[in-house]
Design a protein around this nucleic acid. Structure first.
Lengths: 205, 205
DNA sequence: CCTCCTGATGTCACTTGGTGACATGACCAT
DNA sequence: ATGGTCATGTCACCAAGTGACATCAGGAGG
């Protein structure tokens, strides 16, 4: 690769996160980000389609992991079992780095443009899961409904997980140590609970 | 009100729709729209926050109608019954003007920026429904889950309803006459079917 | 060692979206 | 008529993106 100071992409991502936190999203110009990363604004746009995208760099990795998890589910598993497997994978991946997730989500929630971008990423993820379900032979509209249901659970559980921890939880309130592991099972468990609860709510007549 | 040629807002909406259809969203500048509506670009931005918003003018009306329908549901109805009432209202409103909906959706689906805007509108709608459910005494996460489930059904059913009509349906293929009424019950019925199906899919283990 | 090729970056000019500040002109109430 | 209000026009400006072209490092092959 070129012998330019390496990992311009990573430096841009880091610079963007820092600046979005320091001054907020719309008080940060692309030129600012590029300057902090030691490159030109034009170079920023060669790495990221726009000012928002820099915050969603890892989202395609997440999507691939979820699709892979769904595809690894036994062919005779029910659709929701397969979706649950994907959700477990999501809990595994997202469950690490709770503080990072919290900070990132705070930025996103504070600006409509970023929220829009996040929503379309999740919509694409739902599409990908629906595709995978169809590949297993599930037909419409069930494939879409199952995939979308999975994403509802992901969003709702994740939202509470990164939200204010007014948890009257049995756990200690220590800020970080050991928190990672606890938070991990917690997110995964929250998704499992919410998945079951979604089933109850939608069928209770 | 001012004695400027009236209904600049409506003229801008109409001009935007026309131009987005004629040349596509990104081959249309705000100046173009304003010119066709007989005003200045600056005026466009006094009526609509941005170039996308002009396509979503009626969405707050829709939201209010759905919330009202949900609130009109008997207090002892189950959450999903209340949500179903809101969906019926949605079917009532969206079910008219199928061709308009189809054209509008074609524009939206063809451009990521518009899709993002649509998604956030629907997300806000889900938030509003969840609020209404909480006002009835339903607690989290059930309120969010029920509201989101309702929107899943709305999106999936609506998507098929405006999609390609490769319907091997019993109905005649005449383009519009009588089509409105049939399309109406069709959308509402599709949502009811999908709602039931969502319940089945999520509980089938 | 020299040369050519490639790929990441810089530079520049340009269009477009969007905003703030101020002027204008019609309507309305007094 | 007088002043206030409200929608609009005008102007200047910034920031987001984009296309075209130049540059410069390193690697491959002679």
């Amino acid at each position: 690769m070129g012998r330019w100071a390496d990992d311009a992409n990573g430096r841009l991502r880091a610079a963007a996160m820092q600046l979005y936190v320091e001054r907020g999203f719309d008080n940060t110009t692309v030129a600012d980000i590029a300057a902090r990363a030691g490159v030109t604004a034009r170079t920023f746009f060669r790495h990221f389609a726009d000012k928002r995208e820099v915050l969603f760099a890892g989202s395609s990795d997440l999507q691939e992991a979820l699709v892979a998890a769904l595809e690894k589910a036994p062919p005779d598993a029910t659709p929701m079992r397969a979706v649950a497997a994907a959700l477990d994978a999501a809990g595994e991946i997202l469950g690490r780095h709770r503080e990072h997730a919290r900070q990132r989500q705070a930025i996103i929630n504070s600006h409509a443009d970023l929220l829009e971008r996040e929503l379309i990423k999740l919509a694409r993820l739902a599409d990908a899961l629906a595709d995978a379900l169809r590949r297993r032979g599930l037909e419409e509209p069930d494939a879409s409904l199952a995939a979308e249901a999975g994403l509802v659970v992901l969003r709702v559980a994740f939202g509470r997980w990164v939200g204010p921890d007014d948890e009257s939880d049995a756990g200690q309130a220590r800020p970080d140590h050991g928190g990672a592991a606890r938070a991990d099972v917690s997110l995964k468990q929250m998704m499992r609970d919410d998945l079951a609860r979604l089933g109850e709510v939608t069928t209770e007549r």
